[in-house]
């Protein structure tokens, strides 16, 4: 099971990002664990400067915006 972390200090865009990842995962019938990371120290440890950012299994794959659907599909299917 993939571990998807959405990094962000709790703004609306971060919530939207987490929701759309969950939705796409459901559509693809993939089981993922989506975790919202709001702790600034953890976000710093990932060296992310623009949020929302997404890390999959501990690796940052995206930062700075709400990811497009095609991107999410790409992450979940790889």
């Amino acid at each position: 099971m993939k571990r998807v972390e959405v990094l962000g200090t709790g703004c609306k865009k971060c919530v939207t990002t987490a929701e759309s990842i969950e939705r796409v995962a459901q559509e693809l019938a993939q089981s993922v664990e989506v975790i919202k990371v709001t702790d600034p120290a953890k976000i710093m440890a990932y060296k992310v400067m623009s949020t929302p950012a997404v890390a999959i299994d501990g690796k940052v794959v995206h930062s700075g915006s709400i990811p497009e659907r095609s991107k999410i599909v790409g992450w979940l299917e790889s």
Binding site: G8, G10, I43, M49
Partner: peptide
């Protein structure tokens, strides 16, 4: 271009 909700990550990114 930068959204105020990114203040904290940006602050830490610079500081660190």
């Amino acid at each position: 271009p930068f959204c105020s909700c990114s203040s904290i990550p940006l602050f830490l990114g610079f500081t660190s």
